Simulated scan of single mutants.
Amino acid sequence: MNDTTTRVALVIGGSGGIGREVAERLGRDGIAVAVHYAGSKDKADETVAAVTAAGGRAIAVSGDVADEQAMAAAFDAVEREFGGIDVVVNTAGIMLLAPIATLDLDDLDRMHRTNIRGTFVISQQAARRVRPGGAIVNFSTSVTRLGFPTYGAYVASKGAVEAMTLVLAREMRGKDITVNAVAPGPTATPLFLEGKDQGTIDNLAKAPPLERLGTPSDIAEVVSFLAGPARWMNGQILYANGGIA
């Protein structure tokens, strides 16, 4: 293809959940989309098929987000296919919950490898490659404000993501590239719903003034705004949570 006139997005973790919704939304916005996956090629291919069925252009790329060589190769593949990269959205992350007093430190290391090192690796590549006029969008969580019990290690990793986002926005001075993070609240995805009983889900759904859980499409709408028209939004954490915090 190598069409340098079309905006191009790389969606990290784009094979499922919020990432898939983001990929499909950006495709509908007229952006060529590279769908990154770490483990499930079939799901990534399904996302690619959904984007193309709606009239968009998409490919799948793979790699461990914490492996700088693998991610450099993924960015290379996107540039070869589409001619450049304008938007990088990093939705990849893992969430392992336990009280701080009892959390297995191996789980802490796993989360920090993906959520912190992975975000850092993606941010490095994006800072080097995103074209002027582009956008970098990281993902945090509204639990950095809410402070739910058992989320301590996860929130620690996302607090690091927020700090990186603010610093990178300032380091991109003069390059016409925005850097922001989206911090979803309770959102009806498999990652969020796993392990929660119906009572807990119902209580969380009642907490926002809008009295419902968020949906992946709610979050994708915010990403679409940051990826396209939101040129004066920079160095911000956007709490997409229906007013829960």
Rank of each mutant, 00 (worst) to 15 (best):
A183D: 02
V161W: 04
G27N: 07
R231S: 13
M95G: 09
E81W: 04
A72M: 03
E211Y: 06
T6L: 12
N115H: 12
G235F: 07
F148S: 14
V33F: 08
R80C: 03
S123A: 15
F120L: 15
I201D: 04
I31P: 02
I244W: 08
N2L: 13
M164V: 07
L168Y: 03
D76H: 13
E79W: 01
V155G: 03
S62R: 15
G83M: 06
Q198Y: 00
D3V: 11
P184N: 15
V48I: 09
V130E: 04
Q69F: 06
L26T: 08
K196N: 05
L105T: 11
N241L: 02
A50S: 12
P149Y: 09
F225C: 06
A23T: 01
A44M: 05
I31T: 13
L238T: 09
A245D: 10
M1D: 12
K196E: 01
D42C: 00
G243Y: 11
D45N: 10
S40K: 10
S217G: 00
R20D: 01
T47M: 05
G63W: 07
S123T: 15
F139A: 06
T91P: 01
A70Y: 09
A54N: 10
R170H: 10
Q125R: 15
A160I: 05
A72F: 01
V33P: 00
E171I: 11
T165I: 11
V121F: 04
N138D: 06
D29F: 07
A73R: 14
V179Q: 05
D176N: 15
D202S: 11
A23G: 12
A66H: 11
D106G: 12
S224F: 08
D45S: 10
G17W: 08
A9D: 02
T200F: 14
R117K: 15
S40F: 01
H36V: 07
V51S: 06
V222S: 07
F82S: 05
G185V: 02
T114S: 15
P186M: 05
F75K: 03
G39H: 14
G199Y: 03
E221A: 15
G93W: 05
T119G: 15
R173Y: 10
G133L: 09
V89N: 04
A38P: 00
R57I: 06
N203V: 04
L105I: 09
P208T: 07
